[in-house]
Every structure is written in structure tokens, then in C-alpha cells.
Amino acid sequence: MSKLKIKVRFDYMGKSKGGKLFMGGKDSEHVAEEIRQHKVSLIRNIPVQGIHIEDIDMSQEIYSIYDDITGKRVTYAPVIISLSADTIEDLIRFTMKEEFRTIEILEPQEITLSKHDIERFIFKTSEELKEYKNYLERRIDSWK
């Protein structure tokens, strides 16, 4: 299978950090932008096996929505990453993140998977889900 050319969108959430009365509090837009800058810096500087970053677009505007559960405004800073992936398994590892929103496969126009490819794809997806579950459990435990 030839390399996959992909566009992936991640939306990084920012929550306001309340400061002491008039001192040092950051609004959620500022926090979302800082998180986006930090995550993009990591993506640019830390290689991921099988993933080759071609372009990073941070020109999308920061947006806010109302969260029905918390009753608060939540702000997101989107980024669109153009990349090539050696395999679908590499792509799964790269996209299995809470911030993942959309994916567009640019090339090839058609993908044919063998029985072995599908088995590897399902196995890798399962492994990534287990890792993500462990990550979420650690996060929840740290809040207790």
C-alpha cells in the first residue's frame, strides 16, 4: 500500500484559569491558544514513527460553545495538520486523541486492504483504546 496523504483536525480545549482578584487570571481563549501552541510545538519537534508532518495550519479561529453538562462556556483552538502516514496503524496512533475531530484522506483515492491489513488495523485500534482508557483512568484518579 502506498503512503496515505491525510488532513487531520484537532480542537484543543481551553478552560479559564481564575486568578486572585484582578491578578493573573487567564481567559479561556488565551488558554486554548497557549495549549494549541504547545501541542503544535510537540507535533513539530517530536517525531512519531510512520508519520511525516507536511503542514500545520493554525489559522482557524478560536471558538466557544456552551457545555450543557457543566453550564459553562468551553473554548476550542483548532489546528489542521497535513501529513503522510506509512500505514493505517501509524495513523491510528496519531489520531487516537481526545482532541481529534475530523479526517480527510487526500490520497490514495481508493484503498484495498488485505485480510492481514484488516487484522492489524483491528488489533492496533484495540491497543490504542486500551491505552486511552488507562490514560483516562489515571486522569480521573488524579482528581480524587
Rank of each mutant, 00 (worst) to 15 (best):
D141F: 02
K39L: 01
Q37R: 12
H38R: 11
S114Y: 06
D117S: 08
I140P: 09
G71D: 10
S142H: 14
S28H: 08
K144L: 15
K15M: 10
K17M: 14
D141I: 08
I111Y: 01
T95A: 00
D90E: 11
S59F: 02
G18W: 03
F94W: 01
E128I: 00
L113A: 02
I88A: 10
I122Y: 05
V74L: 01
D117L: 12
S84P: 09
K72L: 13
I92Q: 12
F22L: 11
I105Y: 00
I51G: 05
R139L: 15
G71V: 12
E89C: 15
N134R: 02
S59E: 03
R36T: 05
N45P: 04
S82G: 12
V31P: 12
Q49H: 05
P78T: 09
V48M: 05
L21Y: 06
I65R: 15
L129I: 14
G18I: 11
L42S: 15
V48N: 00
H38Y: 13
Q37L: 13
Y12A: 07
G18L: 08
T125I: 05
L91M: 00
Y76L: 14
I46D: 04
G25D: 09
I118D: 04
I140R: 15
T125S: 15
G14P: 01
W143R: 14
P47V: 05
K3P: 00
H38D: 13
I111Q: 09
I51F: 01
L113E: 02
S142L: 13
Y132D: 09
I46W: 05
D68Y: 15
G14C: 07
V40P: 04
F22T: 13
E34A: 14
E107K: 07
Y76S: 11
L136H: 09
F121M: 13
D86R: 15
L91V: 01
L83R: 06
K5Q: 06
E98I: 05
L83Q: 03
I62W: 08
A85I: 12
E107M: 05
I103C: 05
I111A: 07
E33Q: 09
E89T: 14
E128M: 07
V74Y: 00
Q49W: 07
L106F: 01
E29M: 08
D11R: 08
V74Q: 00
E61T: 06
I53D: 01
